[in-house]
Every structure is written in C-alpha cells, then in structure tokens.
Design a protein around this nucleic acid. Structure first.
Lengths: 119, 119
DNA sequence: GCCGTACTACGATGAGTATCGTACGAGCAT
DNA sequence: ATGCTCGTACGATACTCATCGTAGTACGGC
C-alpha cells in the first residue's frame, strides 16, 4: 500500500489556481477541443475509452492530463475506468460565458468546415 | 525596387481562413493577451511602440506576427510606424461573442491577481 | 490465482515557439 | 545626404509539446 494509494488521487488545480492563458491553451488543440465538445454535448462524465480519437492511447492520456492540469476537466476513478467531467461550474464562475462561447464557436466552425451539409 | 515592394504589403488570412484553434492559441500567451487587451481598450489602431512589453523588440515583432497570422489583428504601415488593429468585425462574425468574453475574462483575472485593490 | 481490459509512466523524437542579439531596411527630419 | 527612429530579418538557443511505442499497474471477472 505504499506504491500507489488506494484512492489513486489525481492532482487538480483549485478554482483560483486556474488561469485564463492555461485554459485557452488547453482549448487551442484540435484533439482537446473535440474532447471538450463531446463532454459538453453528453453533459455528463465520460470514460476515456468513450472517445474515438485519431491518436494512440498514450497521446490520449497526455491530452486528458493537459485538460485536467489546466482546470478544464475533473477526473475521477471509477474502478478500472476513469471518468472525465467538465468543470463547468468553476469555469463559469471564473470566466463567465467563456466555455459556452468557445463551444458555440467550435460548433459554428465545424458546420462551416463540413460545408453545411447534413441537418 | 525588387528587395521590398513600395507598399510593404503584409500577409493576412482571409476571414474564412481564420481558425478557432489558431485564435485561441494566439490568445493563450500572456504577452499577446496583453496586447489584445490594450488594443481593445483603446479601441483604435496602435503602433507597435505604443506597447511597453517586458520583452525585446525582436520578440515583440514575433508576437505581433503570431497575432496577425492567426487573424486576430490587422497590420498596416503608416510611414515608419506600423498600426495594429483588432479584427473585431471578422472575429465577431466567425465566433460571436468570443473576443468580448475572453477580454472580460482577462479583466476579471487581472483584478483577481491585483488583489482587488485600487478603484 | 490468472487473464484481460483500462489507463499510466517513461523514454524518445521531431516539430514548434518564445526568447534574445545583431545587423539591416524604410521612412522622416534636419 | 546624414542621421534618427521604427520595425524586420536572420541566426541561435533553450524550452515546450504532440506524438509514438513499450512496459507496467490497477481493477474486475473467470
């Protein structure tokens, strides 16, 4: 019981440790922006394996860590799975409207890039 | 008359070449965010030398280029000076509310970091 | 106990970038 | 023309980061 604590606690920044630059940087990557969009769409915590990302698992782990350390998501263990949830309350408190605006912008851009098909 | 054209034209992305990730990345740097805040506060085009940044001139040039190439600012020559203006119209058209929200968030964070003094 | 699944840790690598110093070019004033 | 100021270009450097592969740990089921 020394190598790894039973709870496998993960480091998260407290609310007042979250910085705007860090959040913007976290969101400025295509893969991470996609993760955040999926998280927002589902509205609930999702396991890492839910996502079908165009990168390997190692890289996926890396991106989730960047999101966690910048304060965008909160990660908790649930058995062998790890659940990822948006820290919407914290972000909204610190930067009102930022998350929603970025998500809306991402959707708008996705539609533009898709050529406004589908619907 | 071959080394540099008389107009010294600068490369700018067209509106539909502006990407959200690029804009967020441009704004995720402390120095650049400060430039954008100053630009927004003054509301008009400012010369590079207006800014008192904690970096050398070379680095300043670099940051202005990142902002220009990501589509955040538009640069035009005016004699020996170079004027920098926010591309607020383009950004608002592409990502409604994004710029204002980020600026508001930056102000809020600056006040928190200053310890809510002054006023 | 044993194995599979889920995720992590570590090391490597190649690309990007923030920074600087120095040297140069463009325009303005005298 | 000479010199001054503003900004650029180029080269160097050190750091960050996105990516991968491999090996390992934690948990749950058989």
């Amino acid at each position: 019981m020394s190598t790894a604590a039973s709870a496998r606690a993960l480091e998260h920044p407290t609310r007042d440790q979250i910085g705007l630059e860090g959040v913007l940087h976290a969101l400025s990557d295509t893969v991470r922006l996609r993760i955040v969009r999926d998280l927002a769409r589902e509205g609930d915590a999702l396991s890492c394996s839910y996502f079908d990302l165009p990168v390997t698992k190692s890289t996926t782990t890396h991106h989730f860590r960047v999101l966690r350390e910048s304060g965008v998501i909160r990660q908790t263990y649930q058995g062998t799975a790890k659940l990822n949830a948006l820290r919407k309350d914290d972000l909204d408190a610190l930067f009102p409207g930022l998350l929603d605006t970025v998500l809306t912008a991402a959707e708008a851009q996705a539609e533009r890039r898709d050529g406004a098909e589908g619907a």
